[in-house]
């Protein structure tokens, strides 16, 4: 996988993960272009788009679009499963996730993605293991923040 974007139906970027080095300018342009392209497509259409030499696989969950760019010989259908797995993970973690959860806890959404994918490949096929790792790290974070102090010293 080359990159993954999350954006809203209004075209607002909610998360971006780049697995290869792109200049900032290219990232911005790509994001803009893909958001427009994907939002233009009708609901009945297939989830794949051929874009430059990449294949865009996207899926809409409520108000959010999950959009992955894969290489031509990657499995498009499995990429849909990757997206779905990520949504399931977020859902388990936040407890029926919605767009607002991802907006206000964007860093947690990133942490989750980093436990699921690494360098653009799936690193863990067990949901349980991913959630366990995240829980353990959240605990670490909580432990080092003095009690009652969190509100002021954590991310808040």
């Amino acid at each position: 996988m080359q990159f993954m974007l999350l954006f809203s139906r209004q075209g607002k970027l909610r998360l971006q993960k780049w697995f290869s080095a792109y200049p900032d300018r290219v990232k911005k342009k790509t994001t803009r272009e893909l958001i427009t392209l994907v939002l233009q497509r009708k609901p009945k259409m297939c989830s794949f788009l051929e874009w430059k030499d990449l294949k865009i696989v996207y899926k809409r969950y409520a108000s959010l679009y999950f959009c992955c760019a894969i290489e031509n010989d990657d499995n498009e259908l499995l990429t849909l499963e990757v997206i779905h797995r990520y949504v399931e993970l977020l859902d388990k973690y936040f407890g029926s996730v919605c767009e607002l959860d991802i907006i206000f806890n964007f860093e947690k959404a990133y942490f989750m993605l980093d436990e699921f994918l690494l360098g653009g490949e799936v690193q863990e096929s067990s949901k349980k293991n991913v959630l366990k790792a995240i829980a353990a790290q959240d605990l670490l974070q909580e432990e080092e923040t003095p009690q009652g102090f969190f509100e002021d010293h954590g991310l808040g």
Partner: peptide, 18 residues
């Protein structure tokens, strides 16, 4: 601190260019 590192590395992945 772990919290610092966690955000620091996240920032590095998002902000770092070449």
């Amino acid at each position: 601190r772990f919290t610092d590192k966690r955000i620091g590395y996240l920032g590095a992945m998002l902000l770092l260019d070449e």
